[in-house]
């Protein structure tokens, strides 16, 4: 179902888990507790990046509203560059859905970095269309979930034109009873030759009881394309943990070192120095509480 048709105040408009797109994330259940109207944050916007322009955007959830529903549309003009860094730092009882659509003009660049600690229910959707040839898209993300938090990262990339590049690196950590969801689809249309698309999702489940649901998909109808996807979900490497301990680190320190190192590369890839520092600071701060056993 399309999110634009979703009305927070109309339960009949909620997607159900029978809906293939929503089977891992039960929005109806989360919205059963929809609060007063003044606690809902709604935002709908259309952002145009003019040809040749460079825009770096930082978005962060203030976490004031109990329910958030955002719908953004980005049009990235010819040869333009849009970098979007998003930190989702919401309280544990928040419910939020954020959807954005992105259209790339020829030779444009769109880079997105999303960092999340989840919420009662949190979904971040990005729909990208390579509408112009030779566009470059990067969509990276990292999630660190604990307690009963839920984060759903859903991405749809449609290669409609030739010579488009898509790179995705998503890394996740889940512990306690948290759930991480990654649904990624890359669709290469007939005729979108020369497409180079790569999607990688790696998650560590730090204890029994935490879950990761991943559904990476590649659908290719063009010739002469390079596509790859990888999905690895596992536990922390016990041998590496033991190795650290033999050098004197106690278990929490060793775990923190290894798991922090696991998600770090996503932040380190951010080119904008100020934003990279901001994200690193966020991750360091999170790490302090996250890794305490």
């Amino acid at each position: 179902m399309s999110l634009t048709a979703l009305d927070i105040f109309d339960p009949s408009s909620y997607p159900t888990r029978r809906d293939e797109e929503w089977k891992y994330s039960d929005l109806s259940r989360a919205l059963r507790v929809v609060p007063q109207a003044d606690d809902v944050h709604r935002l709908s916007d259309r952002i145009v990046i003019a040809a040749g322009e460079t825009v770096v955007r930082f978005e962060t959830s203030t976490g004031e509203a109990a329910v958030t529903h955002e719908d953004l549309h980005f049009a990235v003009g010819e040869g333009a560059r849009l970098t979007r860094v998003v930190i989702l730092d919401e309280p544990e009882d928040a419910v939020s859905i954020r959807r954005s659509t992105v259209e790339t003009a020829p030779g444009s660049v769109f880079k997105q970095y999303v960092f999340s600690t989840g919420a009662r229910f949190q979904r971040f959707e990005t729909h990208v269309t390579h509408a112009g040839h030779g566009a470059e898209v990067e969509m990276n993300g990292a999630y660190l979930l604990k307690d009963k938090r839920h984060f759903d990262l859903t991405t749809r990339v449609n290669h409609a034109e030739i010579n488009g590049i898509t790179n995705q690196m998503i890394k996740g950590l889940v512990k306690d009873q948290a759930t991480g969801v990654f649904q990624g689809r890359i669709y290469v249309e007939r005729g979108a030759d020369g497409t180079d698309a790569r999607m990688r999702h790696q998650a560590l489940i730090l204890n029994d009881g935490a879950h990761v649901r991943a559904k990476p998909e590649l659908e290719i109808y063009a010739d002469d394309v390079q596509c790859a996807h990888g999905n690895t979900i596992g536990a922390l490497d016990e041998s590496a943990l033991f190795f650290c301990q033999t050098r004197g680190m106690d278990e929490p320190t060793a775990r923190a070192l290894l798991t922090h190192a696991f998600v770090m590369p996503v932040a380190e890839a951010i080119e904008d120095e100020a934003l990279r520092a901001k994200v690193l600071e966020f991750l360091e701060r999170e790490a302090e509480t996250y890794h305490a056993l």
């Binding site: 590496a240 190795f243 070192l257 290894l258 190192a261 696991f262 770090m264």
Partner: peptide, 8 residues
């Protein structure tokens, strides 16, 4: 066989 410690 020393272990590899990725990212550190």
């Amino acid at each position: 066989y020393p272990l590899e410690i990725p990212g550190v």
